[in-house]
């Protein structure tokens, strides 16, 4: 294989990984935008989604659509439940309490999964019958193309939802100023729950795509993925949907290229280094806008 096609292949791999990061990052970004919470549990929602996908794929291997739908529904339900049970009672408490609760939820999900399903990784059967597609000189896996396409469609739909619908307007209003939005007649609790539902549904899609890319699930699979996705969200600018996408792609490509030059053991360190640098140089991220503090 020529160097050129090798590079193309790595770029496609990077975009695939980046798409998964982007889907997860959007969830972080939306929740952070609306209640200023770094939702640690988000990464474990992905883990649960992946386990649901694994369960349905091992039992109904010939109908992947069941696994996809079940995963998305399961994640949505879980996300909304977490919000209602754990975050809603804390709406008026200090942010640090909310953050500690989020860590608690994340730990609870992780350890429950470990206790119920065992710590060992489980193999997920393949989703596609045709593993690879040949385009000219380059052979790419079906999963990569599907992942990138799914991301593109989800992002378009999400942008339409946020920009064009009434619920989207409510979401933007609450994240701008919750109190004023309430005075204007927005149902704050409903809007926040809806945001969690959308974010978690995207996490569900992300978890299925993750299973396509790396066909195994384990209780701790979410934590690193989630952290990197958060780095992607910060890099692109918290609260911005195109920002999350750009951030996801950048982190995905960085990771793939760091691995490609033979430093795969250092790839996590590089990602966190990017986080530290971006927070030093431009804390609002690439597309984020600086918000002045209200007194």
């Amino acid at each position: 294989m020529s160097t050129f096609s090798l590079i193309i292949k790595q770029i496609i791999n990077g975009l695939q990984l980046g798409s998964i990061f982007a889907l997860v990052a959007v969830g972080y970004s939306m929740v952070y935008g609306i209640i200023r919470l770094l939702n640690f549990a988000h990464c474990d929602i992905i883990m649960v989604g992946a386990y649901i996908a694994w369960f349905f794929m091992t039992n109904f291997a010939n109908m992947p659509i069941i696994a996809v739908v079940a995963s998305i529904l399961g994640c949505t339900l879980l996300g909304v439940t977490i919000e209602k049970v754990a975050y809603k009672p804390l709406r008026s408490s200090p942010r640090i309490s909310l953050l500690i609760t989020a860590i608690g939820i994340s730990y609870l999900l992780e350890n429950t999964a470990q206790l119920v399903l065992g710590a060992a990784a489980k193999k997920v059967p393949g989703f596609f019958t045709a593993e690879t597609i040949r385009i000219g000189q380059v052979t790419v896996s079906t999963a990569s193309l599907v992942t990138i396409a799914v991301l593109a469609v989800s992002m378009v739909l999400l942008t339409l939802l946020v920009q064009k619908t009434k619920l989207g307007r409510a979401m933007r209003a609450v994240s701008e100023d919750a109190e004023t939005a309430q005075l204007m007649g927005t149902n704050i609790n409903g809007t926040i729950s809806f945001t969690f539902a959308v974010g978690s549904a995207l996490a569900g899609i992300g978890s299925v795509l993750y299973c396509c890319a790396y066909p195994q699930v384990s209780p701790t699979m979410g934590s690193m993925l989630g952290l990197k996705a958060f780095v992607a969200a910060v890099l692109g600018g918290i609260g911005s949907i195109p920002g999350a996408m750009i951030g996801g792609f950048m982190i995905g490509l960085t990771e793939v290229f760091v691995s490609a030059i033979g430093l795969s053991t250092w790839k996590d360190a590089v990602v966190f280094l990017i986080l530290i640098i971006i927070l030093l140089v431009k804390p609002s991220g690439i597309l984020g806008k600086t918000v002045s503090e209200k007194v």
């Binding site: 200023r36 770094l38 942010r95 953050l99 952290l227 780095v231 910060v234 966190f272 986080l275």
Partner: peptide, 11 residues
């Protein structure tokens, strides 16, 4: 905000 949590975790 919560950046301190994530940055120390990353560190």
């Amino acid at each position: 905000g919560d950046y301190i949590a994530i940055i120390t975790l990353g560190f």
